[in-house]
Design a protein around this nucleic acid. Structure first.
Lengths: 110, 110
DNA sequence: ACTTTTAATCGTATATCTACGATATTAGAT
DNA sequence: ATCTAATATCGTAGATATACGATTAAAAGT
């Protein structure tokens, strides 16, 4: 691929892309739903709900965590995951601002 | 990778993931902005604005087209691309419904 | 101390993405 | 008819993503 050109775009464009990427797999959407519904947020419960192996779920959780949408705390032998509602809100605002920006600059098309 | 398990999730989850995937590269965000700002929407103009080769831009445009966010019409030797505002609106609604769904089922976390 | 439970990480195979140059295609210009 | 310009597509290389089983690590239970 030569080298990624991602860094040549604006920070905001990169940030939006990062958020979108975190949401770009149905498993991660499902994980977010499961996390929202349960106060408990324990990893094992999520594994039970999804049609994926434990290691795969762990990987998806890691990606959500790296994107900042989710936090994880160790609780003894278990891991408790939660949605970071603050970050989610900001991510949402970012997406909204993109759509608004598109709408406001909207010109008639060919 | 064995085989993709994407189809084992709900249609809505898959749909949201598809939209998010289309937005998951900063180049495609930039393309959407460029399309929104210009009534003309000609491929060559987009290539000029982006730090990418013509073939790469063409590929990104194809992905946006496959996701339905953009339409493309041949105009002689040129190609005229436009944002499909209807599809974009629906995609937006889909994302919003996800966030709303998350918010409504929001439980206190550990 | 030993075993069990829970989750993370490693190793790995395959798929998909990203990027480019080269080539093909097709309409317009000469 | 030939040449030029604009795009799309092909081929390809390397990066990243997706999925799993196996292994590791660490706390809890016996």
């Amino acid at each position: 691929m030569a080298i990624s050109k991602k860094t040549e775009f604006t920070n905001k464009e990169q940030h939006i892309a990062t958020v979108a990427k975190a949401l770009s797999h149905p498993a991660r959407i499902a994980i977010l739903k499961a996390l929202a519904m349960r106060g408990t947020c324990i990893c094992g419960e999520i594994v039970e709900v999804l049609p994926l192996a434990q290691s795969t779920v762990s990987q998806h959780l890691k990606e959500l965590k790296e994107a900042g949408l989710v936090t994880g705390e160790v609780e003894g032998t278990r891991s408790c995951y939660c949605i970071d509602w603050d970050v989610l809100g900001k991510a949402w605002a970012l997406l909204r601002s993109l759509v608004e920006e598109l709408e406001t600059s909207r010109k008639k098309c060919c």
